[in-house]
Design a protein around this nucleic acid. Structure first.
Length: 593
RNA sequence: GGGGCGGUAGCUCAGCCGGUUAGAGCAGCGGACUCAUAAUCCGUCGGUCCUGGGUUCAAGCCCCAGCCGCCCUACCA
């Protein structure tokens, strides 16, 4: 089965904090790794999202050019995601020539099919910068109730919808200046003409019942009330509109960002030297596609992106036909998570209420963070990160449960045999443990396939406890006499087998440590493949170079029990997972120490 | 204002199409054990399922109203 793993595109406005990766990166990676193990042909793509006004503002603040700014944060983000072990087939960026071309081609066909309509609107611009001021950056006195802090689009006091041009004393929330209102022309995506097709698709999805309730209900809600939505902006940073007379405008950042899933797949195929390979994931109607993101992105993945695809294919009220990309698949599932909050409040870079992925990995390791996210992350609703919870989960579950099982098993084998011992006849207690662990492949796998990662991890950890209990029940540490050596070998062999299987099961969650565990039990090659950074040239502009994340994942182990090999040497282990002391939230990375 | 989601043990969360005494992990308490990073194993304590109405033989689950938190509503996961 072909499986497209479409991961949200991080915005190049700074390093990633742990809330970002909890929402899209880690869940997408766990799923992708599992699906590869289950034998599917996974294509995992993403990249940095680099257009839009906030980037311009940021570049100004940093006193750098826009290109320097996005290059800088692209590099930082690429490093963060690679260090976390996110196994992208291609992590690229939206500033490639390939992406520009795909976006323009998609636009041209959507327009040819009649779903891009020109409309004139009144918009506020900042006289000092010449930039458009989005309604929400406008503030003024409400013409209806007199509330002095009404927003451009709505008054929070009386609740009335407002037209920004009607505000009394309008001013910019950014710098306080008085905006100028101008008439401007834009291309609007004709959502009403696509509403029927969109509704039909959502109804099918709803009937299938596979999406998370919050996501499908939200999608159906917004689909009930659709207006044309502007897909162009008065801005000079972004993808040019391929229409005469539109040279001063650019595409709306979200119009192009979601197309990245397609353009990245195309770039991947081109780099492979098989330029049509991407079609296996996009044109084959049996191929599956999963889109991972935070809840604030649902509107773009369950409405705008499907609408763009439907418009491209000509499936709306105005008819039409697909262009050269063919009949592009709609999402199989939009997998949206909640937000990870920091001690009850939202992450905020400006207020310093933030924990960066980089610091977290450097101090505590990638898998400790991955474990927390998988065990306590915002899978279907917001969740809290606290340092206390992080330490507790790490020490009591990861270290004391799994780490200890690995360590005690390897220690006993090393001390008594120095290699994986041969088993004699298995007793019922041995058979029971092995059967229970083997059954985990079915149970954990089914949960991972349906995006229930917390439950999947909990099930795997339940089996870890079962293995720890097996040690208590069989007491290998008391089998000391020569006459008990055969039984000791059998128990330790059984335990090694259980640990090996559990390591396979935990590998999607904890890929880095799965390699160390495999190594502890004698593996000489890498167990779980890891992503790497490569410097490449832009395929269509030799003067441009950038880093991508890619990897060779064909060696991914299968999702199945692998018999341990008798005689493989096992040395006295060093602990793989580190136990943590209490962390001072005021100085979590020990900088002040 | 509109649309959507959530509010279940001290903490983090499960509870599918309503069906017997509401579950798990962690923390707490008691005990066992010592191979292991004082880890593990067993037992145990612990809940007005946000509030108030309603439907039903039966409601954490459905309906209505309210309170609280969050997301979207033309550019931060």
């Amino acid at each position: 089965m072909k499986v497209l793993s479409a991961v949200a595109w991080p915005y190049t406005n700074g390093p990633r904090h742990i809330g970002h990766v909890a929402g899209f990166g880690v869940p997408a990676d766990v799923f992708s790794r599992y699906m590869r193990m289950a034998g599917h042909d996974v294509l995992m793509v993403s990249g940095t999202d680099e257009h839009g006004t906030p980037i311009l503002v940021l570049a100004e603040q940093e006193g750098a050019t826009v290109q320097e700014t996005v290059d800088k944060y692209n590099a930082v983000i690429v490093q963060d995601l690679t260090d976390l072990g996110l196994s992208y087939d291609l992590f690229t960026r939206t500033t490639t020539r390939n992406h520009y071309r795909v976006v323009q081609d998609l636009f041209t066909q959507i327009r040819a099919n009649g779903y891009m309509i020109e409309q004139t609107t009144t918009t506020a611009i900042s006289p000092s910068t010449g930039r458009t001021l989005p309604d929400r950056f406008l503030e003024g006195t409400c013409p209806i109730c007199g509330y002095p802090e009404a927003r451009g689009d709505q008054c929070d006091n009386c609740g009335n919808q407002l037209d920004p041009a009607d505000l009394i004393n309008p001013h910019s929330k950014i710098n306080g200046e008085v905006p100028e209102f101008i008439e401007t022309q834009h291309f609007f995506l004709d959502l009403p003409a696509l509403a029927g097709a969109l509704q039909q698709w959502l109804d099918e999805v709803d009937t299938a019942g596979t999406w998370r309730p919050g996501v499908i209900n939200f999608a159906k809600g917004i689909a009930n009330d659709m207006h044309p939505r502007a897909m162009t902006r008065d801005i000079d940073w972004g993808i040019p509109i391929p229409v005469d007379g539109w040279e001063t405008k650019r595409f709306y950042v979200w119009f192009d960002a979601v197309i990245g899933y397609l353009s990245a797949a195309i770039e991947w195929a081109r780099r492979l030297g098989e330029p049509d390979r991407w079609r296996d994931w996009w044109n084959d109607p049996t191929a599956l596609s999963y889109y991972f993101q935070g809840k604030d992105n649902v509107t773009f993945h369950a409405q705008i992106w499907p609408a763009e695809l439907l418009g491209y294919r000509g499936l709306g009220d105005k008819g039409g036909e697909p262009g050269a990309f063919g009949e592009l698949n709609l999402p199989t599932e939009v997998v949206a998570s909640g937000f990870l909050n920091l001690a009850g409040a939202q992450f905020s870079t400006s207020r310093g209420n933030v924990i960066y992925v980089k610091d977290m990995i450097a101090t505590y390791g990638a898998d400790a963070l991955r474990y927390f996210i998988c065990a306590a992350g915002p899978e279907t609703q917001d969740s809290d990160f606290t340092w206390e919870e992080f330490v507790t989960r790490n020490n009591n579950e990861l270290v004391a449960g799994w780490g200890n099982l690995v360590n005690r098993t390897a220690s006993m084998i090393a001390k008594n045999f120095g290699q994986i011992p041969e088993p004699a006849a298995l007793e019922p207690v041995d058979e029971e443990l092995l059967a229970a662990v083997r059954a985990g492949f079915g149970a954990v796998g089914a949960l991972l396939e349906t995006q229930r990662q917390k439950a999947a991890l909990a099930e795997a950890m339940r089996l870890v406890r079962l293995a720890n209990k097996y040690v208590t029940d069989t007491e290998p540490f008391r089998l000391k006499g020569d006459d008990q050596r055969e039984r000791l070998g059998t128990v330790l062999h059984t335990l090694a087998q259980a640990v090996g299987d559990l390591n396979t099961m935990l590998a999607p969650f904890l890929p880095h440590s799965s390699n160390q565990v495999a190594q502890t039990f004698g593996a000489t090659t890498q167990f779980m493949p890891m992503p790497q950074i490569e410097q490449v040239r832009d395929l269509d502009d030799d003067s441009r170079a950038y880093p991508i994340i890619t990897g060779e994942y064909s060696g991914t182990p299968r999702w199945e029990s692998r018999p341990v090999t008798v005689g493989v040497p096992v040395a006295k282990p060093t602990p793989i997972f580190a136990k943590l002391d209490a962390i001072d939230p005021a100085d979590p990375f020990g900088h002040d120490a």
